[in-house]
Amino acid sequence: MNAIIATFRRDAALLWAGGGGALAPLGYFIGAVVLAPLAMGPDRTLLTAAGPPLAWVAAALAVLASLEKLFQADLEDGSLEQMLLSEAPLEALVFAKGAAFWLVVGVPLALAAGPAAITLQAPLERIPVIVASLLLGLAAFIGAGLVGAAVAAGVKRGGVLIALLVLPFFAPPVIFGASVASGQDVGPALALLGGCALFGCVIGPFAAAAALRLQAE
């Protein structure tokens, strides 16, 4: 348990301290939702219809763009070997890394979605639900993203490979998330998002750990 908490704390600190690590996806997301209304013009109905799906696409791509470094550094600097030698299972350490990524990258992004939703003309009373749905959706993205990042860890410029592997798994949360953001079937869509998040948190670390064991060879 100690090893898992230590890995979580170290990764969170590294992501936070590493400059671009945590802020780049946030900047990417904010940039997309600020530019969208400017690009679409002042038509309020268009913005209300297109804004929420657009915010979800921006969140998905912001996470996708930052996944590449998740395991690559550990593989290159020898940290992965040390993780393999821990008594704690690699799956649990991978989960800790994913949780740190969610905390440092995902949570600020979900919180930023609050003000972003206002610029996209979402009604104020819907904002807490949108933030909650993004917290779940980002957990689902990161769970799936762990697998892609692990498979591509040994590949220079593995971003394209990650995108190909991971994007199909981004589709369900984007569908349910956009539905929440548009105010359609909020309850069921939130429940399904929660399901996606659970699926990602449980399957992701196991699949990612299996891929990392192969990478260590």
Partner: peptide, 20 residues
């Protein structure tokens, strides 16, 4: 197995937890 941004002390501390 070092991270450039992490201090020597924090490395050893982390290893002691990771490797018990």
């Amino acid at each position: 197995g070092l991270k450039g941004a992490v201090s020597a002390h924090a490395h050893v501390d982390y290893w002691a937890r990771l490797l018990r």
